[in-house]
């Protein structure tokens, strides 16, 4: 017999060992997320995928699905929390969309659109962050990093290169590069590596590709991240 949970009243089947996010993904139910990519082990850090299960807030990408769970997802309260988290991500870094090659294809921006973010609301940190342009084919702009660790996971688990890591804690966190010089150009990173492709923001970009598709004709210019990430699935 199929085991099921309910998400916003909809019955969703799952298999033992799956998370709430896994079940939602399989059923085409959109739960906002930034640090989660189904190809990699969950990280549970961005908290955008927070849902309410039996009255408690949990990260759906790490919470195992259990028979009979009543999950609330697309509620005004949770979306307000997600909006606040997104706004905090914006003010914590230097996210200047008009100056970013990723604009229109950026998941941080797309989540902000989806949640109807009209302003970052909080006071800006304008942190001092380093740009690393030493690699011939890839640029690392830490101003746009949201510490999702997708590049860390991809480089370690898919590319087998361990190029990236997070250093420091809290507001002192930074994305570091695993080479003696600390420079990207001195690593074995290749532009074709998964680590380069998975960045949800414009922190890691392939050089020379920025405007292949012009602004205004990019993925999230015309489609919501919900439509893209569910393949036009459930409402």
């Amino acid at each position: 017999m199929n085991k099921t949970i309910t998400i916003d009243g909809l019955s969703v089947p799952f298999q033992e060992g799956q998370t709430i996010m896994d079940a939602a993904l399989a059923a085409g139910v959109y739960i906002p997320r930034l640090c989660h990519n189904p190809e990699f082990k969950p990280h549970g850090s961005c908290k955008l995928c927070t849902v309410k299960v039996n009255g408690r807030n949990v990260a759906s990408c790490t919470m195992p699905a259990v028979e009979g769970q009543q999950v609330l997802n697309d509620t005004d309260e949770l979306n307000a929390d997600r909006l606040a988290l997104t706004q905090m991500l914006f003010v914590e870094g230097n996210h200047l969309c008009p100056a970013c090659e990723k604009s229109g294809n950026c998941q941080l921006q797309a989540v902000a659109y989806y949640l109807g973010m009209m302003s970052p609301h909080y006071n800006h940190f304008y942190p001092q962050r380093e740009v690393d342009a030493s690699h011939p084919d890839v640029i690392l702009d830490r101003n746009r990093c949201i510490y999702c660790e997708l590049c860390v996971r991809a480089s370690r688990d898919a590319d087998g290169k361990n190029v990236f890591g997070l250093s420091g804690r809290g507001i002192q966190s930074s994305l570091v590069v695993n080479s003696a010089s600390g420079r990207l150009g001195d690593t074995s990173l290749a532009a074709t590596d998964k680590a380069v492709q998975v960045c949800p923001t414009g922190a890691i970009l392939q050089k020379g590709k920025g405007f292949t598709v012009p602004i205004g004709r990019r993925v999230f210019d015309h489609h919501t991240i919900k439509e893209i990430q569910t393949g036009g699935g459930h409402d």
């Binding site: 230097n94 200047l96 302003s119 304008y126």
Partner: peptide, 18 residues
């Protein structure tokens, strides 16, 4: 009403903030 990126997050002029 704040109109445009600069009024809302500093925009391109704020590139000088660092």
């Amino acid at each position: 009403v704040a109109i445009g990126a600069c009024a809302i997050n500093g925009g391109l002029p704020s590139l000088r903030n660092n």
